[in-house]
Design a binder for these strands. Structure first.
Lengths: 228, 228
DNA sequence: GAGTGGTCTAGACCACGGG
DNA sequence: CCGTGGTCTAGACCACTCG
């Protein structure tokens, strides 16, 4: 029924925060005290409080102790799935079409984001991702050939460039930006010109080597959801 | 210099994944084996592998063991700060204006999201958040008076409704959706009609009681960023 | 300086779930 | 069934930081 172990401690502490036994900004008992109260080892209390701190409920500092966060900066974890998985998870059939694949000097927006010299020639791909044969998202991707030697030979009809790169060019870090844009005439396959569309721009790196810059434009009405 | 303890284990395992010593889909040694190899306790290995699983690098299942994730569903943690904190973190001056505050039957979009009967009367607030005196975001909020008794008496000129609720109406969970919309004539303070704007819609709950539904519309060009 | 969280250890039991 | 991860314990040392 109710959780046991460290999750029970977590739930009880959270209950007291909600019940304002421990109001925002106040200090809560230190780990050893709670361990004694609940009759568990300190490591168990530590696990519970660390979880609450990660979720944003507590501010913890050595010596200062644990305090109830004044501004519960809740952290939503949004997963970045491969589009195929995202679409099939919705119970729809996934497909994609590679529209173009050329080498061209990258525009400054891309070279700047990837910290490459202006006009660096990169692989440029455009593709359309389909859900139940309807346009789901448009992909505009630039790939650094220096970072991904095997890319020229990759067959991208079955697996999308995204999937191929995920498997063959591991990245260590990257960043991710969500913006709104007005659909252009060029992307009329996806949305009528003038419609508002959601774009996700992502750059990924392997250490200090830039791998790829990709912008996904989603069909109108698309939502990015997360739980709090 | 280099990390020690469980983070060192984490880094080493990640290195082997990147180096393709352990390719995607393959099983990695079980915890006890790694503990023996690195000369640490199993709990330390567990901590490292659990961290990698949370980050999406590993799939872990009892009995099946740990496998390198086929599709590194990277999880970006995006924090949901109070707008005041978000603006001041940018080095800009925050201010806000309460535009209206009435009780009115909520539209169906809101009552459905909050699982309330149609036309339930709720507090309705609209406000404008400013950064350096320029419009930053428009807020459209509905508050359930049954869940927040003290709200009617709250002074919302100094603290925004968001801040007041955060301090006085703790929530247990909620959800969060990002969409793109076309700016309407009604919100012309924020954006010229026809521009694409980013909206964030959030509902929060205290247990099974709905607290508030809020939609923030950000000025054109706004980005939501996260690190991978 | 000293209190508090961060982490590690060695050992143990348990729950899940693959075969 | 039984191997593997999930978790707990009791104790210890350490690092950070407040006062």
């Amino acid at each position: 029924m109710s959780p046991t172990g460290w999750q029970a401690i977590e739930a009880e502490v959270l209950r007291r925060i909600h019940a304002r036994d421990w109001p925002p900004g106040s200090a809560i008992p230190h780990e050893a005290a709670l361990a004694a109260e609940f009759g568990v080892a300190r490591a168990t209390v530590n696990r519970a409080l660390r979880s609450l701190a990660t979720a944003g409920w507590l501010d913890r500092r050595r010596k200062a102790g644990s305090r109830v966060a004044l501004h519960p900066v809740r952290k939503a974890t949004l997963s970045i799935p491969v589009l195929r998985a995202e679409v099939t998870a919705l119970g729809r059939t996934y497909d994609h079409r590679l529209l173009s694949r050329i080498t061209a000097p990258a525009p400054s927006e891309v070279t700047q984001a990837l910290a490459l010299p202006p006009e660096t020639p990169l692989w440029h791909l455009t593709a359309l991702h389909l859900a139940d044969a309807a346009p789901y998202a448009a992909e505009d991707r630039w790939v650094n050939p220096a970072a991904v030697p095997g890319f020229a030979a990759a067959a991208l009809d079955q697996t999308s460039a995204n999937e191929w790169l995920v498997q063959n060019a591991p990245f260590t870090h990257g960043d991710y930006a969500i913006t709104a844009a007005v659909a252009s005439a060029a992307s009329s396959l996806l949305a009528p010109p003038g419609a508002a569309v959601l774009t996700v721009t992502r750059t990924t790196w392997d250490g200090d080597r830039p791998i790829t810059w990709v912008r996904l434009t989603f069909a109108p009405g698309h939502q990015i959801r997360a739980a709090l």
